[in-house]
Design a binder for these strands. Structure first.
Lengths: 116, 116
DNA sequence: TATAGTGCTTTCCCAAAGGAAAGTGGAATA
DNA sequence: TATTCCACTTTCCTTTGGGAAAGCACTATA
């Protein structure tokens, strides 16, 4: 029997897009990845590089990103102990997404300002 | 005086990325845009093409997308009245983002399954 | 000894997101 | 007349996100 759906299936695109959104969801994950990929390693450096982020949120998001193997938490056993956050190679695979969002965001802001 | 920041600035990228995220945030906006761009026009068709979405959420997100000029609500004055949702040309500018997310999502799923 | 910095954690709170289920009003269909 | 379809709306509730502020263990510095 044929299927009786009256709509056009778009699951081929919707499903992988949702998978991606689940990993990089929320306001902060991509900004944090960008900051770490730029070279910020220390907790407070990352915090100061992202206006508005609070330490609670940063700590939580760093844990999430670690679980997804996008960044690595490195403990340096000096006195005093240092903690560094470094991008994992897998983070590089996000570059096309970041570039696309950056390009769109720049253009969007231009569009908004032209209007008003 | 020189600036005394100890962190590396990444605002050039973080700011436009945040602008983009603000427009397409949440779980549903991109799936809805994909569905409409695929050719689904009717409320129930869109709803059925996106597993798990509820009418309340769909109605709210459609309004948001209309405000951002990504889709258009068209009223057809037949008997009975029909309401169609159509993509605006501006929605096409999201294609690079959607493609990047789709590619990443497909690869991510492959990576996850290989591991387990 | 007092102060400052580091990398968080804890508590409290609020707003937004989102799910479940039922309802609604008009028009078409059986 | 009863049912169904369409495009939502309404209500209720739970979860999640996120902000403010304080605290804390440790070390270094004055």
């Amino acid at each position: 029997m044929a299927n009786k759906m009256g709509y056009l299936s778009c699951l081929d695109t919707v499903k992988p897009v949702r998978d991606a959104i689940e990993v990089i969801n929320g306001k902060w994950k991509l900004p944090i990845i960008i900051s770490v990929m730029t070279g910020n390693e220390r907790f407070t450096d990352i915090q100061e590089s992202i206006p508005g982020i609070t330490p609670k949120v940063l700590a939580k998001e760093l844990k999430d990103l670690e679980q997804h193997q996008l960044i690595k938490r490195v403990v340096i056993d000096d006195y005093p102990v240092k903690i560094l956050y470094r991008p994992e190679p897998y983070a590089d695979t996000l570059t096309p997404i970041i570039d696309a969002l950056k390009g769109w965001g720049l253009n969007h802001r231009k569009k908004i300002f032209e209007k008003e």
